[in-house]
Amino acid sequence: MVALRRAFKVALTRAGFAALLGLMSLHPTGGAMAQLATAALVAQPVSLPDMALGPADAPVTITEYSSMSCPHCATFGENVFPMLRAKYIDTGKVRFVFREFPLDIKAAAASMLARCAANGDAEKFFGTVQLLFQQQQMLMAQTNMTLRVIGKQAGMTEQAVETCGRDQTLLDKLAADQRFAHEVIKVESTPTFFVNGERLKGAMSFEELEEILKPLLKK
């Protein structure tokens, strides 16, 4: 774990991770043009391919920036996302994009595990994320053991989990995407959502989210 932590620290520092954790003031944006510009920036993946559920041509796209160490993110993932998926994603009304924004080294390790376990399969990615959120307290307390257990549940060998944790290229891409999110589209905290380009900060209940979706789906 010591060697792994050093690797994360080096990569995240190299990518400006320390700067990412500093607070920046949001630049106010107003009007349809600003929202369209933000939506265009959010729509395009940077270094890592998007992990998404729902049709690409859905009338509403929700992009969540999330950290595996964020309790509010876990609450959303466990309590709100299943209802959102059943009512809106699986019915073709919403496309949901999950973007990693790790707030610490342990969250970065968990994000890497989810990427490795999925190997490009969105369903497997979201399933692994769900497992990580369910075991968030254990992940924070006993990171290596928890990653091995969840990796095994996702079909990975212990060696594959170790290899994933040493994947410098993956870590660099993760850090680059986080830097872009912070510096360009002003993501400061988790969870942060973009609903058709409109920024929404902080946890939401299903009812609150649904109130935002309903008028968009009537257009």
Rank of each mutant, 00 (worst) to 15 (best):
T63L: 04
G30S: 14
M112G: 04
A37Q: 15
L174C: 07
G22A: 14
G197T: 08
F180H: 15
H27L: 12
F101R: 02
P28V: 11
V161H: 06
D50Y: 00
V2L: 09
F96A: 08
K218R: 14
Q137N: 13
I89R: 07
L209G: 01
Q134Y: 03
G31Y: 08
M138R: 13
S25P: 14
M204W: 01
E100G: 04
L103S: 12
T61W: 03
L209P: 02
G16N: 10
P191N: 09
D177V: 11
T192Y: 04
E211P: 00
L23P: 13
G77D: 10
A37S: 14
K106C: 00
C116V: 06
A37M: 11
E211S: 10
M156H: 04
A32Q: 15
L174G: 03
A154S: 13
E183A: 14
Q44D: 09
G127S: 13
L132W: 03
A19H: 09
Q134H: 04
F194E: 03
S66D: 02
E210D: 13
A11Q: 10
I212H: 01
K124W: 07
G77Q: 08
L103N: 09
Y88K: 07
D172N: 11
T190V: 06
V10I: 13
S25L: 14
K219C: 03
F180V: 06
A58N: 09
Q153T: 07
E78M: 14
V42K: 03
E188Q: 14
K152L: 13
F98C: 00
L53D: 02
L147S: 01
V46F: 04
M138Q: 15
P28H: 12
A74V: 05
L209E: 01
Q44Y: 02
T190M: 08
I62Q: 09
